[in-house]
Design a protein around this nucleic acid. Sequence first.
DNA 1: ATTCTAAATGAAAATCATTTTCATTTACTA
DNA 2: TAGTAAATGAAAATGATTTTCATTTAGAAT
Lengths: 143, 143
Amino acid sequence: MVRRVITLLRRRGYKVTPQRRAILRVIVDSQEHLTPADIYERAHKEYTGIGLVTVYRTLDILDKLGLICEVHAEDGRRSYLLTRPSEHHHHLICSDCGKVVDFTGCRLGELEKRLSRETGFEVESHLLEFIGCCPSCQKAAST
Amino acid sequence: MVRRVITLLRRRGYKVTPQRRAILRVIVDSQEHLTPADIYERAHKEYTGIGLVTVYRTLDILDKLGLICEVHAEDGRRSYLLTRPSEHHHHLICSDCGKVVDFTGCRLGELEKRLSRETGFEVESHLLEFIGCCPSCQKAAST
DNA sequence: ATTCTAAATGAAAATCATTTTCATTTACTA
DNA sequence: TAGTAAATGAAAATGATTTTCATTTAGAAT
């Protein structure tokens, strides 16, 4: 996984630095969505010589290459998640603990067509997120 | 419209100040989505003795009461729009000029049920935004 | 009408995430 | 192995939002 991304980076003319490796490893190893600060904290343990700025810059690149994707947190902060090879997907976010579950199959093509027809917009993309309470937080809440 | 909101504010125990009236009038008079700074600027013309902080605070209240709703801008800034009485609606946002068009009828109930079944989440709400290019920006772009 | 009090306000400072700057270092090409 | 453009880190800048706190005020109570 990391190897795949590294190859892609090189092919696109980006240099592969220890910082970028560390950041990548953190993202790949985690199944959660992480804020830049989270990633910094973890990567820093592995490779001390790394700055938060570099994390931001690397995340920008990875995002641009479509290797990670941004999650809109409710408070406006951003966080990132590794893009699954399945491409087009959306998030189901727990409003309590922040856990993120991916899903695909949004079936919004029909709606998109309708909107184009009715408004004249040329639709480029969409953002779909469900907010809810995950099973373990439901359990915790009922205690 | 403004009157309706003012009544609601009073009923909920909020005081009706000239600042709040000015902010309300700005929001009701505008069909666009406005950032807190936009609202401040306009309200300030009408009622000079108003601060940006008060705008933020008032927007928080109006949002909490469901009278306005937040729009996720792509750059992470927020902006607000009067909630139409039609309730549940979503946005179609022009990536070029930022124009926002509301729409209803998202038909996500089916998907929501599927997600609940598959993940055990208790879905509370969802966020759906389409990003695209509005007719006038399309025209401008082809010039 | 006047008094009273909790709520609301504004100015300034604090926060906090993110971006920019710039001098230094480094990955990779030739 | 040397040369160069890209990458880095530290610090400063930015910009939106929030907090603090002393002062004012809306609206209830008298």
